[in-house]
Nucleic acid binder design. Structure first.
Lengths: 231, 231
DNA sequence: AAAATAGTGTCTCTGAGACATTATTGA
DNA sequence: TCAATAATGTCTCAGAGACACTATTTT
């Protein structure tokens, strides 16, 4: 397929920072590239936006192709757009719209799309890898965004399933912030934030004493905010 | 000039929400379009990104062309990217990277670039205009961003000149938030936020009692944050 | 003297952090 | 009975909001 235009021509891509918790550790999905440039390098999943496809539709499509995850399983928000002329060595000018994607219990990664291999990485390891393109920067920005958003939005519940105990929600905060929190203070603050969570009336099952199960409340912004402990 | 590509072809634009204070009222720069589509509609200043030009360079260039403002006069930050296939009626697919630009005492607008006319609008009026493309949405998002950022960053000083009194800084907050603030509490909080402002040793001149002049401190994030009063 | 702006202190209330023990379940 | 998780209360401290008057300058 060939296109022509009277404007400077760009390719537009989406790149995804897909985060989930595995064993109470924050993980990010990376794919190993099968093609040049950066063949065999690890990279964020992503790809080109199609004609007549919106940016978020492209993000959801890549998520489905490269992670096998449907849009009902995740929350997705735009991070920022990266457009340095040198960020992609190919002759085409490639601008990439990056997204942060949060999900609970996302499936084990599988190869798909043009990726030779896909797997979850604990973020501490992923940030030490020599990622393709400017993906190390994008990942760092995505992590910052996730950490910030947990403070003043209810986004943390996106890491949990449809129902969860307060203990699970606390584990989310501890994994993303990398700091232990006091359970009593955490519970007090979560329950004092109107619309953060609501009781389902059910109790959890499994190991340990059953606890009340909650679901996401109606609020999107948190007031008052939870505060990331300093130090 | 004609380009060809093996990828779906996009044009990439930048659009700017340029804010300044005029008579203690928050104003935004709009241009009247001279060409189709949306000829004679008011729009955010902006234009296409050139070949081999980074996104922020394009934003600064448009700012210079359409507002006559150099990069040393403003602070600029990326807002988000808009890419709905229907957002531009032209056959080319146009994705726009939007920016929020804050400046002090920006010059009276002049026509430039492909704008027939340019002028400052109080934001309350601007948001009621039928703007071109999806610019009403972009402007609304830009206003939200500016209001949020004033809470937890030192961005407010970008609306002031190189030195300013605390009274001027308070006027910035009141204009952007649309709420009166208590001067005593405001001073206490600003001076308690490490690195927000630092004394110059100079005093203001002009009407009223002279006050200490401050300049922007080294901090970019505010701790503790200033809080937008509710209600 | 009038208008405009700068500067100062205290009380009260809310929310944050620190901190230990008991309760209930499954293995 | 042990391991794992849930649940509960109090004290102290910091920061936010409410609130009134005096000081200095220009016109």
């Amino acid at each position: 397929m060939t296109f022509t235009s009277d404007f400077p021509v760009f390719a537009v891509a989406v790149d995804l920072c897909v985060f989930t918790l595995r064993d109470d550790v924050l993980n990010v999905l990376l794919v190993r590239r099968g093609e040049q440039p950066f063949a065999a390098h690890w990279a964020l999943p992503g790809g080109f936006v199609h004609e007549n496809e919106s940016l978020d539709a492209a993000a959801y499509r890549e998520l489905s192709e490269e992670a096998g995850v449907g849009r009902d399983r995740v929350r997705l928000e735009q991070l920022r757009t990266y457009g340095d002329p040198a960020r992609d060595p190919r002759p085409e000018r490639v601008v990439s719209v990056a997204w942060v994607v949060l999900g609970a219990d996302l499936p084990s990664a599988r190869a798909g799309g043009d990726a030779a291999e896909a797997r979850w990485w604990p973020v501490a390891e992923a940030t030490r890898l020599p990622l393709a393109f400017d993906h190390a920067q994008i990942l760092a920005d995505g992590l910052d965004r996730a950490r910030d958003k947990l403070e003043y939005t209810t986004l943390a519940t996106a890491f949990c399933g449809p129902t969860f105990t307060l203990g699970r929600l606390q584990a989310v905060y501890e994994a993303v912030w990398g700091r232990p929190l006091d359970a009593r203070n955490f519970r007090r603050k979560v329950l004092a934030s109107a619309g953060f969570v609501e009781e389902t009336g059910e109790l959890s099952t499994g190991v340990g004493r059953p606890g009340k199960l909650y679901r996401t409340g109606g609020a999107t912004d948190l007031w008052p905010a939870l505060q990331l402990p300093e130090g």
